[in-house]
Design a binder for these strands. Structure first.
Lengths: 147, 147
DNA sequence: CAACCACTTTACGTTAACGTCAACGTCGTC
DNA sequence: GACGACGTTGACGTTAACGTAAAGTGGTTG
């Protein structure tokens, strides 16, 4: 991002596994992340992705792949697509954003952050519960083994 | 749970804040956890709660309160009500559960556990992202402050 | 060239988790 | 005894996040 895009052409590469692939089809991405193409198109419709188009078909670059990854991670953490989009949009608008917008972004980030903290605590508590339940289950199992 | 329920009557208690309240109305519980009564009734309908009834009205005890708490925590961690119910049911059926059921329970627990692990990792990664975005935002803000 | 992919758009269907509204019962109190 | 606060059931509505089916496009392969 901060590195000026080099004007060097990619070295003639007969390699079968190009180090850093340029583009992906929707099907490829779908398999990579174990989602359906439908899901990916839906995310685009919701403003989370904006792939290039070659004619009709979508061409996904690294940037898009990263966005999808972040989106799915956000989802696993319980964020709605709308929330995720909000952050992504502000992030994209950052360079020329005014102070008010930036402060708003910082607010949102702080909010997400406290959310994460709470989830960390929830996870710790939940893990204890699981430990507890598992222990009891094992006890009962052992008692069943010796009549 | 392991302590035999004392037969001592609750000491005559003119106290305004009884140490360990016996029961709750649906409205009280709702306010405690910042959900609506509708939500609590829905959870009952889904088999997550089973409060006592005095006539028509529901009476919630400590056990019910704990269940609700666990349920809401599970929700914050992205579990579906069905998943939560599954664990609760198996937990209740544990004492007289057969070996197969118990092993099944252990499987489920292991599953939840790996889910937690993944979420921990997701949270760590997400926190880094947030750190990163926040840093950039602050940079831009400072640059705006000094023209 | 036909057959078969992978991709496209459009549109309607589905599920979970409640919200909302109506219509009613039951207290305490003014 | 009317009123308000709280509780009840029942039924229908809503939203997010996709699933699914229909019908068409574009390339390549036997």
């Amino acid at each position: 991002m901060s590195i000026p895009k080099a004007e060097v052409a990619p070295p003639a590469n007969g390699n079968s596994l190009p180090r850093h692939r340029r583009t992906y089809s929707i099907g490829e991405l779908a398999r990579m992340f174990e989602v359906t193409p439908r899901t990916i198109r839906f995310y685009e419709q919701e403003g989370l992705l904006a792939p290039e188009r070659r004619g009709q078909t979508r061409i996904y670059h690294e940037k898009d792949r990263v966005r999808l990854k972040l989106t799915l991670r956000g989802k696993r953490l319980g964020f709605s697509l709308a929330e995720i989009r909000e952050v992504i949009e502000m992030y994209d608008a950052m360079p020329d954003g005014n102070a008010r917008q930036l402060k708003r972004l910082l607010e949102i980030l702080a909010d997400k952050r406290s959310n994460m903290e709470r989830q960390l605590e929830d996870i710790r508590l939940m893990q204890r519960e699981l430990d507890d339940v598992e222990m009891r289950a094992r006890e009962v199992l052992e008692r069943l083994a010796q009549p």
